[in-house]
Structures are given as C-alpha cells and as structure tokens.
C-alpha cells in the first residue's frame, strides 16, 4: 500500500467480524499481530512498504475464530471496532483487540490480493 505523504491514504478494505471464543476467563481470538509504531517496521515480513508501521496479522490459528471470520495471515489491520490501527503502538493494538467486555471485534483489514482484485475489476469495466 503506497501513499504520498500528506495525501489521504486510500485502501481497499474488507470488513471482518470475529466472534471471540470464550474459554473460561480467556477470550480467544485465534490470531497474532505484529507491528505498531513502536516497532522496527523494516523487520516486518508482511509489509510491502518497509516503512509501514501498521499492525499486521502474523498468524492465524487453524479453525480459530479469526480464520472462521476470514482473516488471513499478512492482513493489515486498519481499524478495530472503529478505532484506528494504523498509528498505534503494539500494546495499544493488543489492548484494543483483547478487550474483555467485547465479545465481537469488527476489523477493517486490507491485503494485497484485495487491492489487486479491485484493480482488475476496474480494468475490465
């Protein structure tokens, strides 16, 4: 996802609704995240742009709630329940995702394949 500094970022996003799995006191989301503005973005294996400090999905548990909802490894999380995730620290993102009083998280994610699909469909018309 490339952008020109100062210009609004446009991205093709997908809405994903994850119903957390309750396991005792734990709420299981079934995925892992990496990144955040406090982390070295150049080590992110998923980002195209190595300066992108966004939150990325690094792992999705097979059969877990996240996979059921359609989350994929390498997705970039843009929003969580309406909260911006493109300019947050790693811990802030984790906090936001693992709220105990929320059984459902609604994500906006973007991924390369999404953008390509949209581009292709636009070319056809």
């Amino acid at each position: 996802m490339s952008y020109i500094p100062g210009q609004p970022v446009t991205a093709v996003v997908q809405r994903i609704e994850i119903h957390k799995l309750r396991d005792g006191n734990n709420l299981i989301l079934g995925f892992s995240i990496g990144g955040g503005i406090d982390q070295d973005p150049s080590q992110n294996p998923f980002s195209e742009d190595k300066t992108d400090k966004g939150i990325y999905v690094t792992r999705v548990t097979k059969g877990g709630p996240a996979e059921v909802a359609g989350l994929m490894m390498g997705d970039k999380i843009m929003q969580v329940n309406g909260w911006d995730m493109t300019m947050v620290t790693h811990d802030q993102a984790r906090k936001r995702l693992t709220k105990k009083n929320e059984d459902v998280v609604r994500l906006l994610v973007t991924r390369k394949s999404l953008e390509e699909a949209v581009r292709q469909s636009m070319m056809q018309h």
Partner: peptide, 11 residues
C-alpha cells in the same frame, strides 16, 4: 523496538 508479534488468545 524490535519487531515482535503477540498472540491475542491471552488476555
């Protein structure tokens, strides 16, 4: 800080 990942299955 170095890039790390964290599982979201724990509170």
């Amino acid at each position: 800080s170095p890039w790390k990942e964290s599982s979201l299955d724990q509170p």
